[in-house]
Amino acid sequence: MQNILTLITDPRNAMLTPRLSNAVRDALALARGKVGPADWLDPGVACDIPFDNVAPAEAEAAARTALRGMPVDVLILKPENRRKQALVADMESTIIRNEMLDEMAYEAEIGEQVAEITRRAMNGELDFYEAIRERVGLLKGQPASLLDRVAEKIKLMSGAAALVDTLKQHGVYCALVSGGFDHYTVGIAAQLGFDEQQANHLIVEDGAIAGIREPILGREAKLEALRRVASQKGITPADCIAVGDGANDLAMLGEAGLGIAFHAKPKVQEAAQYNIRHGDLTALLYAQGYRRDEISGRG
């Protein structure tokens, strides 16, 4: 069949049942669709439902109605070129749970002021470049030791290690691309096994934070990273999967063959074609058709 409707939930909940998948299949049939049997990628967590003769938007709406608000993500995908050959991932609030500028600000006791700027910038309400200059400016003069103290607070997003390890085992090139700081991307990339990383660089002078190196890497740099990685690997952006949560991720999400907004800001969810709102980062694997026994830590 020409389309796949994939249902995914949080593996820590694993509440996806045959009854729910059958309710979605029935809804597609009522929309005059041709519907195939459910293919369980991971019982309780993810399944594929092949279908034809229903427009993707109508199929997604029918599925969400049938699910009645259950915490299940719905993706409408094509079977061809489903498994991508490169991953380009945002870091903060995506691969890790933290927003590192916010963490630095709270450590410096100006957290609320900086966090509000971050929230508005990530939701597309403020210019990203001016917002990061303003936030770094507020931290100017703070001791450089602050950077290492805050690094101890980093927490990986659930499923991050499984995502990167599984993709690496299947020969996928993995790039970590952040609008944050290389003081943190270097360590996270090494810890998880990313093939490369890029991020902004904080200037430290006389043992204190002095500013940010220009040019600042943001929306355009992430899009360019996607294109560069594809070119270097001899593939196209259509052969890549990208993931992020903020407004400065939208350009790369829109150009990637599979661009997923992960637990994203509301305006980003509205603009993105694909959203994961409930699952963890292993949802990116299920979206590509990986099965439970292929996923690191899920066997």
Rank of each mutant, 00 (worst) to 15 (best):
A208I: 12
Q191S: 14
L217I: 11
N248D: 04
E255F: 00
A256G: 06
A238I: 00
M252L: 05
G254F: 03
E224F: 12
I260P: 00
A247G: 02
I203P: 00
A230V: 12
L258M: 09
A238E: 08
P215C: 05
A189G: 14
E205Y: 02
G234K: 01
G257Q: 07
L223Y: 14
L253R: 07
E196Y: 04
G218R: 03
I235S: 00
A238Q: 11
G193N: 05
L223Q: 14
V204M: 10
T236W: 04
G246L: 02
G207S: 07
A230R: 09
R219S: 13
R227M: 13
G207I: 08
I241H: 00
A247I: 06
D195W: 03
I235W: 07
E196I: 14
A189I: 10
A190V: 11
I235A: 06
E196N: 12
G207P: 06
V243H: 03
L202P: 06
K222Q: 12
H201C: 00
M252E: 06
N200M: 03
G259E: 12
E224I: 12
A256T: 03
P215E: 13
G246M: 02
I241Y: 00
M252Q: 01
A210I: 07
G207K: 07
H201R: 15
C240V: 01
E220Y: 07
A189P: 12
I216M: 04
Q191M: 13
P237N: 02
I235M: 02
E205G: 06
L226M: 13
L202F: 06
T236I: 01
G244L: 08
V204T: 11
A242W: 09
Q198T: 15
D206S: 14
G211A: 02
E196L: 15
G234F: 06
A230I: 10
A225N: 08
P237F: 04
G254C: 04
D245L: 07
Q197V: 03
Q232E: 15
V204D: 07
D245C: 02
R227K: 15
S231C: 10
N248G: 05
Q232S: 08
D249T: 00
A225Y: 03
V204P: 11
G193R: 02
I188P: 11
V204I: 15
G187M: 10
A190L: 13
G218I: 11
A208N: 15
G207M: 04
A247N: 09
A199W: 11
I216R: 05
A208M: 13
E255L: 08
D206Y: 08
V243L: 01
S231T: 13
D195L: 10
I260Q: 00
T236Q: 07
A221G: 10
L192S: 01
A190G: 11
K233S: 03
I235D: 10
I212C: 03
Q197H: 15
D239N: 14
I235V: 11
I260M: 01
E224K: 15
A242F: 09
R228T: 15
V243Y: 01
D195N: 11
A256W: 05
E224W: 10
A238M: 03
G211W: 04
C240Y: 01
F194R: 09
M252W: 08
E220N: 14
A190M: 04
N200I: 06
K233G: 04
Q198E: 14
G254M: 02
A221I: 12
A225K: 13
A190I: 05
V229M: 00
Q232F: 01
A225F: 05
T236G: 10
E205T: 13
D206R: 13
I203L: 14
